[in-house]
Design a binder for these strands. Structure first.
Lengths: 206, 206
DNA sequence: CCATAGTGATACTCAGATGTATCAGTTATA
DNA sequence: TATAACTGATACATCTGAGTATCACTATGG
């Protein structure tokens, strides 16, 4: 399936465009998952047509975002040496990195089934080791992983002025789109295709 | 602002329609938050025009869903006697009800800022009482509330065959839209207005 | 039973988004 | 420098959904 077609070398400057698009997409979509490709292109400082050239479809772009997140996760798992370091040490290292990931990949992080089985498995393995070490008691490692990620998520959703946390890291809490914190406003959940408001939120009040 | 307009009595008939629409909307939107009003109307067994007659706009419909959720929450808080019962007892009662709410109001539950300050305050008060009773140590009741809801949410997101839970309640886990569990498929996140796939998810893998 | 509220069917308008095509100009790189 | 890749601008075609209006029909409830 590689076909012996023409190599069609990719210019360095095109790769930069791709990177800028991905970056802009993450930023814009984190703020409004229903944002149009045009807004993403604007944020990237490129024309909409260029986005279409780099990504055959909107879906392809979103897939790329998910793939990027998984790469970062694998990188984080490697850096934290989750397979070899003492589990509690690994957990702390991982936490710092994942926390950062949740800030920088707010959109991708909210994608359904964003994480590949490989990433999930490696996370689960850490919880297996935590259990073996007696650090946790939960029988099911997947459950441990879910709770872990859920709690991290809640922390990262906390308002900046929360008395509970006094984070050292810079917290650029843009609180989604500022115009849409109110119930009626935010309720304009992903209005499929109209002039009416848009903007949703992945993990809200509940 | 009530204007002395014509009373325009509302027929019982119409109220039933409204209820059916809300019910259908919750079901359809839980499966696909970007679903069109047409699909909702279909699910309700009504014409799309009727939906527009009952709710002036899509936004109005979503607002109604949020309002309904808040009503249910207030009702739950009342039934659990969170203000008077021993806090741990209240917590358990509340948990059962909220757990049910998360199943029956999967969409509204995912709306950003769905819960009114009133509901949040009353929930927080319970955590204040829990702390006073020594049941928990968290300083910030809002944080307790968030963790509580987040964990409940994770439980309700667990796959039906999880070894961790052996729930007594019937668990109709439709796993969102069955066609869209895979990454590429689910990545078709709220494509604003095209023939390409749709369907997102409010609280996914992370 | 009858005035009236409610409904479905149909046909619109309007806006926004995706995706394609073309072409002229610009930039990287061998 | 010259080829090929990349880009922006522009113009389209197409689709989908929201929202409105009209009219004939049905069901409610006093």
């Amino acid at each position: 399936m590689d076909g012996g077609g023409v190599p069609r070398r990719i210019r360095a400057d095109a790769e930069r465009s791709t990177a800028r698009i991905l970056e802009a997409a993450e930023a814009v979509l984190a703020d409004d998952p229903a944002a149009s490709l045009e807004r993403i292109a604007d944020a990237a400082g490129l024309a909409r047509v260029t986005v279409h050239r780099r990504f055959s479809s909107r879906t392809a772009l979103l897939d790329a975002l998910a793939a990027q997140l998984n790469e970062r996760y694998l990188q984080a798992l490697g850096e934290a040496r989750v397979d070899t370091a003492p589990p509690l040490v690994a957990l702390q290292r991982l936490t710092e990195i994942v926390f950062e990931l949740k800030l920088t990949h707010r959109f991708a992080v909210g994608l359904f089934a964003a994480l590949t089985p490989e990433v999930l498995d490696r996370l689960d393995q850490l919880f297996v080791r935590l259990r073996e070490a007696g650090a946790i008691t939960a029988a099911d490692p997947a459950w441990g992983r879910r709770v872990y990620l859920a709690l991290l998520h809640e922390v990262h959703e906390l308002p900046a002025d929360s008395p509970t946390l006094a984070p050292s890291a810079p917290r650029t809490r843009s609180r989604r789109r500022s115009t849409c914190s109110c119930a009626p406003c935010s309720a304009r959940w992903a209005a499929p295709a109209t002039r009416s408001g848009r903007s949703p939120a992945s993990v809200p009040n509940r």
